[in-house]
């Protein structure tokens, strides 16, 4: 604990630098995630995707950003001005704040706190405020319907998500994300995706629902309610919503990598020849590779599945996913008690 003012100052500056070192690559990742989305979906639909600005269209995200920033922000006539401006900020802040406890490798983490997973849950449950407030403050029926849909959906899927996390907690015996990764040491089949396969699948599904992405994107539902909660937003404010949505997707991907597929651990760990080379070592490379893989799944599903009907979403969440997670939490407890899966072996 630093004591003098100078110590405080140095501590704050170092902390600030660490935060910048996470946030700047994150924003760049969001920019190129939009590019990746357009390219991947383009190729899946036998198109080329953006290919005009820069080599292979690589500067397209920057063109998009400048376009959005230079556009006029239109304020609806009877909107609640303050909340209308506050909403995008409220949706972006938790998406970024959650990254503070994400471990990139064995030592690269801003805050190695013991309640890390709870903190993540708390932050992801705050994201819904941005949506609700945006829908309400816009004073528009479409926006309000979108806000109601998405808040009901997010609250419902948070339950399935929470139960899936409880399974992980039981297996890992810790709320600290770094400890959870260390508990999965030992190779491909020691990662939690294998003993907790149903929870892994459910976590990914509710992750897609939590971020309001296809096939659960009824909050936007272009064909029904135009664009949902952000129908009245334009320019920079819209860009911030966009940023938050993509940052949340990257966050969910990173969390799936950490909680179920061993974070920074190498899949070749323990395999004779290749496990002794550098590929067998855990590193940030593996963490990023896994994260990008789950990010790709989001795009793949968007190009593959048709949108769910709203009652089907609710039915899936409450009557299918929640009961399965409850049962598997029990199974995970048995694994743990009877020593069928040993931590960090």
């Amino acid at each position: 604990m630093p004591e003098t003012w100078l110590d405080h100052l140095i501590y704050m500056v170092i902390l600030l630098l660490k935060i910048i070192a996470v946030v700047v690559p994150l924003i760049l990742a969001v920019a190129y995630y939009t590019y990746m989305e357009r390219k991947v979906i383009g190729y899946m639909q036998v198109r080329r995707g953006p290919n005009r600005i820069g080599p292979l269209g690589l500067f397209q995200p920057f063109a998009d950003v400048f376009k959005l920033l230079l556009k006029e922000i239109v304020m609806p006539e009877n909107a609640n001005k303050f909340l209308f401006v506050l909403a995008p900020v409220l949706s972006m802040a938790p998406a970024f704040a959650a990254w503070v406890v994400v471990p990139f490798n064995d030592w690269m983490v801003i805050a190695d706190i013991d309640a890390g997973l709870l903190y993540i849950l708390a932050m992801s449950s705050l994201g819904v405020y941005g949506l609700i407030i945006a829908g309400w403050a816009s004073n528009s029926k479409y926006a309000f319907l979108g806000a109601l849909r998405s808040s009901a959906q997010m609250v419902s899927y948070e339950i399935a998500m929470g139960f899936a996390l409880i399974g992980v907690l039981i297996m890992a015996g810790s709320l600290n994300l770094s400890e959870i990764v260390r508990a999965q040491q030992g190779g491909l089949l020691d990662w939690f995706w294998f003993p907790l396969l149903p929870l892994f699948v459910i976590y990914v599904i509710s992750g897609v629902a939590e971020t309001n992405r296809a096939p659960f994107d009824v909050a936007e539902g272009e064909s029904e309610i135009v664009a949902g909660f952000h129908v009245e937003y334009a320019g920079a404010a819209f860009a911030v919503f966009f940023l938050a949505e993509y940052a949340n997707m990257i966050l969910i991907s990173a969390l799936t990598a950490i909680l179920f597929t061993g974070g920074w651990l190498s899949p070749f760990e323990g395999i004779p020849v290749i496990g002794d080379t550098i590929l067998g070592q855990g590193s940030i490379f593996w963490f990023l590779a896994k994260t990008v893989f789950f990010m790709y799944l989001f795009l793949w599903w968007r190009a593959t599945f048709p949108r769910y009907r709203y009652d089907q979403i609710m039915r899936l969440g409450w009557k299918v996913l929640v009961p399965i997670t409850m049962v598997w939490v029990l199974v995970a407890a048995c694994f743990s008690v009877f020593g069928l899966v040993v931590r960090g072996s």
């Binding site: 449950s125 705050l126 819904v128 405020y129 609700i132 309400w136 109601l148 808040s151 609250v155 948070e158």
Partner: peptide, 10 residues
């Protein structure tokens, strides 16, 4: 904040 107040606002 994450659950009770969301339903309240709702």
């Amino acid at each position: 904040v994450g659950a009770v107040m969301v339903l309240f606002l709702f």
